[in-house]
Simulated assay, not measured.
Amino acid sequence: MTRLIVAAGGGGDAVAAAMLHAALYGDEDHAVILTYAWDRLLVDPVPGPRGPDSFAGLEPVTRSVWSVPAEARPIAPAGSTLPRLAAELPHTFALLDPHHGAVGITRQLEEMAHRLAPSSIDLLDVGGDILARGDEPTLKSPLADALTLAACCQVNAPIRLLVAGPGLDGEVPPDELRPLFGSLVHVFTAKDVEAIGPVLEWHPSEATAMLAATARGVRGICEVRDANLPVGLTDEGATAHEVDLDDAIGRNRLARAITATTSLDEAEAYSREVCGFSEIDYERGKAARLTGQPSTKLEPDDVLTRLDRFQSEARARGVTHTTFRHITEALHLSGSHRDALRRLLINNRPEQYAAPLWRVPSNG
């Protein structure tokens, strides 16, 4: 038996899909996880999502869908975490290609439903920005989720929408999400995290890292992103809720607007119109800024000194935890330094490692 899980926003949602599968279905069924290759600039220096032509070694699943085996490789300068996920997790990862808009994704989903005849189809979003209206001041990345939502609402197959870790993406406050929640599907525990524990040691996702941390009992305020965004780590963060698909698309104005789009450019234009911005434009601007920055070396003594300064300022903001991705950016290091930075910090101050997060000490 096969379970099909659609990772709404790609990236960390694909990792969370593996944890969801372990929690809900165990070892009974095989999981096929449909996900974007959209890993943001820490991993992929090229703005926007990758299509099949950005990889070597993909394997055909249907006419429009390709799987990403462990042997696949992104073609430089593109980057992707998907081959490593395929190597380390016992699932099939298949590529969602948004370059033909919501119409193209709908076609891919229909082909997969026909090809696999899955026991269930789950659409999973960590955080809940798939339920964004489009005008939230903290909204940062609505396009990927809106595309999958728009497509799933047009597929002739039963699809269950699940929101895990309400508010953990920092985009829509949990208070705005709760009225849309149906049944409580699962409360994640430390046992559930075991399925993805090794992946969390290297994967850059912040929302899924916080989902895992709350499942392990971590509580407090976690600072994320390059904008010092505070996110609450609460009991609610370890939950997954079902949401009616009709209610979701009734709220998500961008998803309704892009239903008939046949290109990513067209969908992106609607994002600018409905939300006032495009997340790919943001990536383009950030990539240009990073390109112009001189390369830096990771000097341990200097890094630890700057870390102390960062932690002091974060503590004054009420922060108790942060992510290694955020520390990397806060210390003005490049994404290529993230793994070395993580090793340096854990080796020097192991008591602050609240896996997979970093604990900010309560005093200097």
Score class of each variant (00 low, 15 high):
residue 97 D to K: 09
residue 103 V to Q: 08
residue 88 E to Q: 14
residue 113 A to G: 15
residue 104 G to F: 07
residue 76 A to W: 11
residue 95 L to E: 02
residue 103 V to M: 02
residue 92 T to H: 07
residue 70 A to K: 07
residue 76 A to L: 13
residue 103 V to W: 00
residue 122 D to I: 11
residue 104 G to R: 03
residue 122 D to Y: 13
residue 114 H to W: 15
residue 130 I to W: 08
residue 114 H to E: 15
residue 124 L to K: 05
residue 115 R to H: 15
residue 99 H to W: 13
residue 124 L to Q: 05
residue 124 L to I: 01
residue 82 L to P: 03
residue 100 H to Y: 11
residue 113 A to N: 14
residue 122 D to Q: 09
residue 82 L to T: 02
residue 104 G to T: 04
residue 122 D to P: 00
residue 95 L to V: 03
residue 114 H to Q: 15
residue 86 A to C: 04
residue 76 A to N: 11
residue 98 P to F: 07
residue 130 I to T: 10
residue 83 P to F: 04
residue 111 E to A: 04
residue 95 L to I: 02
residue 127 G to V: 06
residue 94 A to N: 03
residue 112 M to G: 09
residue 84 R to E: 11
residue 103 V to N: 01
residue 71 E to C: 10
residue 119 S to A: 15
residue 89 L to F: 09
residue 80 S to L: 01
residue 83 P to E: 00
residue 103 V to Y: 02
residue 87 A to G: 13
residue 113 A to W: 14
residue 128 G to K: 12
residue 125 D to Q: 10
residue 106 T to M: 04
residue 100 H to G: 01
residue 88 E to S: 12
residue 130 I to R: 06
residue 93 F to A: 04
residue 119 S to R: 15
residue 72 A to L: 04
residue 106 T to R: 15
residue 73 R to M: 10
residue 113 A to H: 14
residue 130 I to Q: 10
residue 109 L to E: 01
residue 124 L to E: 02
residue 76 A to C: 09
residue 87 A to I: 02
residue 79 G to V: 02
residue 108 Q to N: 04
